[in-house]
Simulated scan of single mutants.
Amino acid sequence: MDHGARMQPPAESWAESPTQPPAKSPARVAVFVSGEGSNLQALLDRHKLMPSWPCTIALVVSDKPWCRGVRRAREAGVPVFAAEPRAFASKQVYEQAILAKLHEQDVDGIALAGYMRIVSSVLLQAYRGRIINLHPSLLPAFPGKSAVADALSAGAMETGVTVHYIDEGVDTGPVIAQWRIPIPDGIDIGTLTERVHHIEHLLYPVVVGEVAENWRPSRSRQP
Results as ranks from 00 to 15, higher is better:
95 E>F: 08
95 E>T: 03
95 E>A: 00
96 Q>P: 11
96 Q>G: 08
97 A>D: 08
98 I>P: 03
98 I>L: 14
98 I>M: 13
98 I>V: 14
98 I>W: 06
99 L>Q: 05
99 L>E: 01
99 L>I: 07
99 L>G: 01
99 L>S: 05
100 A>W: 04
100 A>D: 12
100 A>Y: 04
101 K>M: 14
101 K>T: 15
101 K>R: 14
101 K>C: 11
102 L>K: 00
102 L>Y: 06
102 L>D: 01
103 H>K: 15
103 H>I: 10
104 E>F: 14
105 Q>V: 01
105 Q>P: 02
106 D>I: 09
106 D>M: 13
106 D>H: 15
106 D>F: 14
106 D>T: 15
107 V>K: 06
107 V>Q: 02
107 V>E: 00
107 V>T: 06
108 D>R: 11
108 D>K: 12
108 D>N: 13
108 D>Q: 10
109 G>I: 11
109 G>Q: 06
109 G>K: 15
109 G>Y: 12
109 G>A: 09
110 I>S: 04
110 I>C: 05
110 I>F: 07
110 I>G: 02
111 A>P: 07
111 A>W: 09
111 A>M: 11
112 L>H: 09
113 A>R: 09
113 A>C: 11
114 G>V: 01
114 G>W: 04
115 Y>K: 02
115 Y>A: 03
116 M>N: 04
116 M>H: 10
116 M>T: 11
117 R>Q: 14
117 R>H: 13
118 I>R: 15
118 I>H: 14
120 S>C: 06
120 S>R: 12
120 S>T: 09
121 S>P: 11
121 S>M: 08
122 V>N: 08
123 L>Q: 03
124 L>A: 05
124 L>E: 03
125 Q>G: 13
126 A>M: 08
126 A>N: 01
127 Y>Q: 02
127 Y>K: 02
128 R>L: 10
129 G>N: 03
129 G>C: 06
129 G>S: 09
131 I>W: 00
132 I>D: 01
132 I>M: 12
132 I>W: 09
132 I>Y: 06
133 N>F: 07
133 N>K: 10
133 N>I: 04
134 L>K: 08
134 L>G: 02
134 L>I: 14
134 L>D: 02
135 H>M: 04
135 H>N: 03
135 H>L: 05
136 P>F: 14
136 P>W: 11
136 P>N: 07
137 S>G: 08
137 S>F: 10
138 L>N: 06
138 L>V: 11
139 L>W: 08
139 L>M: 10
139 L>E: 05
